[in-house]
């Protein structure tokens, strides 16, 4: 049982607090994604769980044990780095077996473990190459292999796909999800890309400025974003958020409606505006509409419908999908 729980975790660099009290429970076998804009503290939080970053106050429990002050290698974790961190002077085989050789395991056992991992990740033919001679996707797999061989309770991933090109990234997302299903281990995954979060996570943790904004399943966050920040961060294209007079009319401080929950019509609707810009994505078309009283907003319509810039349109929000936020 390797659940992870963080209790009132804080981290300061000098006078500057970067993690401002995080409480979180991650269940055994869960795929948990930390997502947030750069500088929100998500990588720092991951590194605190790994033990690479000291904890200012609070506790980290892994598998029911307090590991707040334990060495990284004593926490039953493995980590995959953004840069992969493959040792350039060692072959793939030596890279995967490095941790075992540090632990002075017998050679035969190391060889056997490495073969097993190579099978899982189809690395067999690459075992005697140096990292230099591998493609980006292959390096990524070696880095994962080095994590698997430790047989950890918890896998930590620090933006592992950000150095790959778009098509490979899509493929690796699927491979990682499959791997999670096969190993059944707890995984914590840091990314700034909400698409990765939505597609892979059992549980998403949205972080902002060192605090948790919201925790939930991908659909929870999409359907019931707790704060305007989460509302704006999860979903693509971004939710339209209005402050000021529009929000006041709705009896709140911030009023939100997703572009896909606006009905666009040629002749009637709640808001009248002019099309300023048209983005055709094929299946969908995104309209940038400028309305006199409320400013610019986005609306998503089906791909076969088309408007020219300058056309006058009417947009009506779906009343069941409106969000109203009031700050206390």
């Amino acid at each position: 049982m390797t659940q992870v729980s963080l209790h009132d975790l804080r981290k300061s660099f000098g006078a500057h607090e970067v993690i401002k009290g995080v409480d979180l429970d991650i269940a055994d076998g869960e795929f948990c994604v930390f997502v947030g804009p750069s500088g929100c503290g998500k990588s720092t939080l991951l590194r605190m769980i790994a033990g690479l970053e000291g904890v200012t106050s609070g506790t980290v429990d892994i598998g029911g044990q307090d590991v707040t002050h334990a060495e990284p290698s004593k926490r039953g974790i493995a980590m995959v780095f953004q840069s992969y961190a493959l040792y350039p002077h060692l072959t793939v085989r030596e890279n995967i077996g490095f941790g075992l050789s540090l632990a002075r395991k017998p050679k035969a056992e190391i060889a056997q473990e490495v073969e097993k991992v190579a099978d899982i990740l189809q690395l067999g033919p690459l075992l005697d190459r140096k990292p230099k001679a591998l493609s980006g996707g292959q390096r990524q797999r070696v880095a994962i292999g080095r994590a698997i061989v430790r047989n950890p309770g918890v896998f930590l991933f620090d933006e592992p796909l950000s150095n790959l090109d778009a098509s490979l990234r899509g493929q690796m997302r699927i491979e990682l999800t499959d791997l999670h299903a096969r190993l059944g281990a707890t995984m914590i995954y840091v990314t700034h890309d909400q698409v990765e979060a939505m597609t892979m996570a059992d549980k998403i943790v949205v972080l902002n400025a060192g605090r948790i904004e919201q925790v939930g399943t991908p659909m929870d966050l999409y359907e019931k974003p707790a704060t305007p920040f989460v509302a704006g961060f999860i979903g693509s294209p971004k939710m339209n958020l209005f402050e000021g007079r529009v929000a006041e009319q709705q009896g709140c401080d911030v009023y939100g409606i997703r572009p896909e929950h606006l009905t666009v019509s040629d002749d009637e609707g709640r808001w009248k505006g002019t099309v300023r810009h048209v983005e055709r994505l094929g299946a969908d078309t995104i309209l940038h509409v400028e309305a006199e009283d409320i400013g610019t907003f986005l609306a998503r319509i089906e791909g076969h419908r088309s408007y020219r810039p300058g056309a006058v349109v009417y947009a009506t929000p779906d009343p069941a999908r409106e969000f109203r936020y009031t700050s206390r």
Binding site: S73, F81, Y87, G99, R150
Partner: peptide, 24 residues
């Protein structure tokens, strides 16, 4: 990252230095 990967792998400071850094 290379040092940290080795630390997570259980390397002591001396092992990080002699087995990862010095060869590089």
């Amino acid at each position: 990252d290379l040092d940290e990967a080795a630390i997570v792998d259980g390397a002591t400071p001396l092992q990080v230095f002699f087995r990862v850094i010095l060869p590089l």
